[in-house]
Write a protein that binds this DNA or RNA. Structure first.
Length: 479
RNA sequence: CGAGGUGUGGCUCAGUUUGGUAGAGCACUACGUUCGGGACGUAGGGGCCGCAGGUUCAAAUCCUGUCACCUCGACCA
């Protein structure tokens, strides 16, 4: 029982308060516990159950798109990591090295995987010989390690859980299609299961994944106005294939280099949920991934018949939602606060008065709306309310994003908007010159987030240099 | 790695200026009364005051060193 006291003040306040609010939730909702290894966290059962639900849903989506799960080693020999130049340059600063096996020094040190492209490539080189061997559509659920300097639970930890999809195709087009397909799967997942609206877009050249030809991402806006990259999908071209000598014989009996992709989402999505839906009373979980979707709280449970009725209801509704009954001897008020802190979407109160009237009280977590529901109606009403909670969360998040998205046509305007209205997404045109991209970030603090797939026209001039603009870019401060 | 800050029961902190028996609230344990928004009473358990030296009759408090963590920069799913 970790929860105690009230939440830390207004979440819309300054950065520092927001950070405090966030770390408060991860502790009090019993999502994580810190460890003696800096930047590494224990994901507690409640937090892990959220991840398990995400895994189950995503895995189903991956199977539907024809992907198979595999498992690569945790260690990458240094020579293997170094085969692709851009890739190693991007990751070298943040990898952890294994230098000893037992008491003996290793001849070649091994890095703890920060991502597994190189391992997949080595494997592809072994198994791909003919066009008949393509495509290969793989995915793995593992943890990776990146030796970050500053860390924050779920958003940036030194070890984190993720899924990484890796695919290899005969043609560039097929690989590009795969890259876009998986980006859409992620967007679908975020919007329809996590109730979190996202912007689908392409990263700028300077913001690409190390070794990629192009990187796509979904970007979400947290309710403090900062952007969070919620998932990425990369197209590699044949760069890795060349570096790792992956070749196949095509139908004309010629040697060809295949084209690759990779894509991933991480436990960072849990952080995204906290910062998208959470409020002053704690966590708010989207029903699709909530470990408990409905908690039954008996009122005056010492009185005859109350516990029995609660148990009876639990048995009845356990087939239609994930339900739990709290029979502990805490006071009802304590329990209300506790399950609000933990973000349980629906609360069902059942007490002597209700039993007398053959009804119960159901309260929504997202807006605290109260419903008196006849006990005969539960099977119909509960799924309906869960769907409404999802809808309510999505709409609230969407309107927050819309209210915090500003179209600007000059650096001065960006500065003014950010100063007057606070952080958010800035929509502005760009000439595709990296110098302008850097200058906008330097002067306003807002970096380029992505070039949305749905391009809009705001002006024909670059927000920075005034030369002809080529792309609409979303800019923002990011986690 | 640069700049600031903080280390005192599980948590949040007071006490440090001016050295003199280690404190509070919450949490925890037991029993009883409660129960529709974080209940109440009674009794209890839990500390080398981050660590190491020094000054002193006496150090959480003063001095020196050291370590850890946090915030802000730079880097990042």
């Amino acid at each position: 029982m970790a929860s105690n006291g009230k939440m830390v003040k207004d979440i819309t306040a300054m950065d520092e308060d927001f950070a405090k609010w966030y770390t408060d939730i991860v502790k009090k909702a019993e999502l994580i516990e810190y460890t003696s290894v800096k930047g590494c966290m224990v994901i507690r059962p409640y937090g892990y159950a959220i991840w398990e639900n995400m895994q189950r849903i995503l895995d189903g989506m991956f199977k539907e798109t024809g992907h198979e799960n595999v498992c690569m080693p945790m260690f990458i020999p240094e020579s293997l990591l170094q085969k692709e130049k851009d890739h190693v340059e991007g990751f070298a600063p943040e990898v952890a090295w294994v230098t000893h096996g037992g008491s003996e020094k290793l001849e070649e040190r091994l890095c703890v995987r920060p991502t597994s492209e190189t391992l997949f490539c080595e494997h592809y080189a072994n198994i791909i010989h003919s066009h008949r061997d393509l495509p290969k559509l793989y995915n793995q659920w593992v943890s990776v390690v990146r030796w970050e300097k500053t860390t924050r639970p779920f958003l940036r930890s030194r070890e984190f859980l993720w899924q990484e999809g890796h695919t290899i195709h005969a043609t560039a087009n097929e690989a590009i299609e795969e890259t876009e397909r998986m980006l859409n799967v992620y967007a679908d997942f975020c919007e329809n299961y996590l109730a979190m609206p996202v912007i689908k877009g392409k990263k700028t050249e300077s913001d690409k994944f190390a070794g990629a030809v192009s990187t796509y991402a979904i970007e979400a806006l947290m309710h403090d106005g900062k952007a969070l990259q919620a998932g990425t999908s990369h197209y590699f071209g044949d760069g890795f294939a060349k570096a790792f000598s992956i070749q196949y014989t095509n139908k004309e009996n010629k040697q060809e280099y295949p084209h690759q992709t990779s894509w991933g989402v991480t436990t960072r999505l849990i952080g995204a949920i906290i910062m998208t839906h959470g409020d002053d009373n704690g966590l708010v979980l989207p029903p699709a991934v909530a470990p408990t979707q409905l908690v039954i709280i008996p009122i005056a449970s010492h009185k005859p018949g109350v516990i029995e009725k609660a148990e009876e209801l639990e048995a009845r509704i356990k087939n239609i939602c994930r339900v739990k009954t709290d029979k502990s001897d805490q006071s009802p008020g304590w329990k209300f606060a506790e399950y609000e802190m933990k973000g349980v979407p629906l609360r069902l109160e059942i007490g002597p008065k209700d039993i007398e009237n053959n009804q119960c009280v159901i309260v929504r977590r997202d807006n605290r709306e109260k419903y008196f529901v006849s006990l005969d109606e539960l099977e119909r009403k509960i799924p309906e309310l869960l769907a409404e909670v999802h809808k309510g969360l999505y709409e609230k998040a969407l309107s927050n994003r819309e209210n915090r998205t500003y179209a600007c046509t000059s650096i001065e305007e960006i500065k003014k908007v950010l100063a007057e209205k606070g952080d958010g997404f800035i929509k502005a045109m760009w000439c595709e010159d990296e110098a302008c991209e850097d200058k906008v970030k330097e002067e306003t603090g807002a970096g380029s987030r992505c070039m949305p797939l749905d391009q809009e026209f705001i002006s024909d001039k670059c927000v920075c240099c005034g030369k002809p603009a080529k792309k609409l870019v979303y800019w923002g401060k990011a986690y």
